[in-house]
Amino acid sequence: MQTRFGRRAGAFAAAASALALLAACGPSADETAEADASAGGEGITPDTLIIGAVPAEEATGLENSYEPVIEMLKDETGLDVEFQTATDYAAVIEGQRSGQIHIAQYGPFSYYIAKNTGSEITVAGAMVQEKDEPPGYVSYGVVPADSDIESIEDFAGKHLCFVDPNSASGYLYPLAGLLEAGIEEGDWDETFAGGHDASAIATAAGECEAGFAFDSMVDETLVDNGSIEEGDLRVVWESETITSSPITVYDGLDQELFDTVMAALQEKANQDYLVANGYCEEGDCDLTDERIWGWEAVPDDFYDALDVVCEATRAAQCSDS
């Protein structure tokens, strides 16, 4: 049985409503055509660059967490830059495929889906939590502190909280872990909570018997913001290291603008540069709601590991891509 918390109404309906919102804020078809013509048919230069992202936790403050990057991109490109909070990854995928989102923050799996379903995008960089750390993180399987569940093998027959069907750490890697533990797909009830915070909070409250969320959401974010107390959740499973979430640029931009945005994200979208140049203050410059140091360029094959996980899980989302 599959249920969803009210925060998410369904991928396609959400994508449609989000695209309607983006269309209202983004360039019209005529404006896009004019921009394309002015660029000699080689790419567009929109009046406003649109950044799209899905909140890892409740959306309050998500735009503020990108504000230093937004201001830096305004200075680098000379264009207005607007941030749009999407309801789910399907909305971001459709928005960037249609050229209405020019810069998008994905999770690893949603990027994999986007790339393999026709989105013309390029990875500018992967999230780095701390300076000089390799880009990567893990998914946790968590249970309430007083649960008698001791390992992922005990998840069979239980009510589980996942995050989003297009989430690497909130669905794909947990699915791989369940199958590796010998649990047949469907031998659990599931809820897609809509966010890593919602999944962990629901599990702590006993609404799900076990759940999944990425590591720093459980270890730091929810404890720091008071959503849960330290010790409310017990970690009983960890995934292998997952490649960090990518930020991408729409390939349909004018080449000079594309190069400018790529360089800015790779070289200047980090705490060191942003603090040094007055976009934010030391100690108050955590970027995105995942509180990262910044992004760094990664090799072209960085996300190939997802092929292996898709092969192991044969998840419907993988085959759809």
Rank of each mutant, 00 (worst) to 15 (best):
E31P: 11
E185V: 12
E267C: 10
S110A: 07
A181W: 04
A39F: 10
P68M: 13
D301Y: 00
C318T: 01
P55H: 09
E71D: 15
D197I: 09
K131Y: 01
K268T: 09
Y140Q: 02
S216H: 13
A297G: 05
I51K: 04
D75H: 11
V275F: 08
V81W: 08
A39S: 15
E209Y: 04
Q255H: 13
D320T: 09
V143S: 00
I121R: 00
F109R: 00
E230V: 02
G283T: 03
S151Y: 01
Y273L: 06
L172N: 11
D164G: 08
W188A: 14
G41Q: 11
T248L: 04
Y273A: 05
G10P: 06
C285G: 00
A16I: 12
E229G: 15
A53I: 02
G157Q: 13
I149K: 03
A126N: 07
T260Y: 10
D197H: 13
A263Q: 13
Q266F: 02
T117Y: 00
A39W: 09
S139V: 02
D36K: 06
K158Y: 11
G6H: 09
V309I: 15
I149P: 08
G107D: 09
P108V: 05
T241E: 15
D289P: 06
L160Y: 07
L265H: 05
I93K: 02
